[in-house]
Amino acid sequence: MSQTPSPFALVRQELHQHPELSNQEARTAERIKQHFTKMKPDQIFENLGGHGLAFLFKGANPGPVTLIRCELDALPIQEINDLPYKSCIDGVSHKCGHDGHMAIVTALGNFLSGNKPENGSVICLFQPAEETGAGAIRVVEDETFSQLKPDFCFALHNLPGKPMGQVLCKPGTFNCASRGMIIRLTGKTSHAAHPEDGISPAIAMSHLIEGLTRLPDTMTGFNLVTVVHASLGEIAFGTSPADAVVMATLRTTTNEAMNMLVAHACQLAEQQAKAEKLSVSIEWEDVFGASVNTDTGYQHVMRACQAVGVEAITMEEGFRWSEDFGIFTEVSEGAMFALGSGEHSPQLHNPDYDFPDELIPTGFAVFREIIRGINGFEDKR
């Protein structure tokens, strides 16, 4: 006989059924607000950086402010799982586990409603638009965020391929900086029988693809350029092309290295365009800074894991994938940690991925213990 899901597994499954894309999370935010209103937080902040929400639980005494962050948004991926709580939205689903992250923080809010921090305050933040890299910075730049002024910020991300409930963390870079580069080359069309009468971007495009791929070889440390798309002209055998587009993803372990890689990539694009008498324009999308854990934040995570008996591994290297949480540790102490979601789980962003509900108590326990170590509270378990 199947076990009855916990209340917060049901919250997770409800959110899973009703996913929303980045910057469209209004109904998700309303669902979260309905749950938290019953918990009677001391203050509710709405429309943070878009559809973001923050719930403040105040302690009796002055002290530090600790912020626990999760994400509201889903992905433009068609779910293929046959689940009783399968996504109701065609082409949209929670394939990164943000539904699970929200359930964990909702469980934490429920606990805080009956166990206020002894010193300072705790904030449960539901951030919009993590998948685009724009949400965290919009939250931090929002005027309302200046009222929150967190001293500590923490977040987790589930990680398929690792043992269920195992925590992975490290001081320093936890996630790479990354950004999408769009290079547009423009020349002049001509008849394909007389290409000399036009200006084709074909040679510049081919040199640019090779040059971008080899660019990291000229730099030290981990740097990566992945060409993700390229197009040239139109499907017209009688026409020599005038336009080309090359798109690439740039990754580095530090923001300083990213600035250098960007400069080199732009210089390469301009050189190739000039050599072939083309005009060039460059655009950027999905810009993520490096997510850097502070030493103090890392120590709080490891201490909490030890206290609640959760296996915790100190990673030697950060992850290549990106996360926009790094903006929070630019303004406060803090850390992000990974939480193993099963060695046989489908990977993140796969159409058959599903966040495991059995992970909710572990994430909750680690966050609760982090708060106990920083703010303290009378535990009424």
Rank of each mutant, 00 (worst) to 15 (best):
R372Y: 13
G340Q: 02
Q306W: 04
P163I: 13
P128F: 13
Q267K: 15
L10G: 00
A26I: 11
L208I: 03
F36Y: 14
A136M: 12
S279Q: 13
M205L: 15
I123W: 11
G97V: 03
D197P: 00
G52V: 10
Y353M: 03
V366A: 03
M258D: 04
E130N: 11
A365C: 05
G161N: 03
L67D: 00
H194F: 13
E14R: 12
P163G: 09
G198Q: 07
M102L: 07
H157Q: 15
T186D: 01
R251C: 05
T28D: 10
F111E: 02
S231T: 13
A365Y: 01
R214L: 15
V11D: 14
L232P: 06
L348N: 05
F337R: 03
E79Q: 06
V228Q: 04
D82F: 06
H264Y: 14
A103T: 07
I282T: 07
I360A: 02
P160Q: 02
G334M: 01
T4V: 15
I89P: 00
T218D: 14
G120H: 04
Q78W: 00
G309E: 09
N293C: 08
Q347E: 12
T249A: 12
F355G: 01
K188E: 02
E343T: 15
V287L: 13
S345G: 00
L53W: 08
P361E: 01
T362H: 02
V308G: 03
A265R: 09
D42M: 09
M102I: 05
Y353L: 03
S279L: 06
F377P: 05
K86Y: 08
F174S: 08
A290K: 10
T66F: 14
L261G: 05
L278Q: 01
D354N: 15
T249E: 13
E311D: 15
M181I: 14
G233D: 01
E317G: 00
N47C: 07
I123Q: 07
D197K: 13
A273Y: 05
A192C: 10
L21N: 08
F337I: 03
G91C: 09
S146C: 08
L208H: 04
M315P: 02
H157D: 09
A60C: 07
S146P: 00
A244T: 08
E333C: 01
I199L: 06
K162D: 07
I199K: 03
P195L: 06
A29D: 10
C305D: 06
I371R: 04
R251N: 05
M258F: 10
S200N: 05
Q17S: 15
S121P: 06
S190A: 15
N119R: 13
S22Q: 11
F36M: 15
K170C: 11
R368N: 08
I282W: 06
G376A: 11
H300C: 09
L67H: 04
H207E: 13
N375Y: 10
N110A: 11
G289K: 12
N119Q: 13
P195M: 06
L75F: 02
G289A: 14
M315K: 15
V225R: 06
G334A: 03
S121N: 12
M260S: 14
F36P: 00
L268F: 10
G342P: 05
G97T: 04
K277W: 02
K380R: 15
A129Q: 10
S93P: 00
I77N: 03
T186L: 06
L10C: 11
A192F: 02
G221T: 01
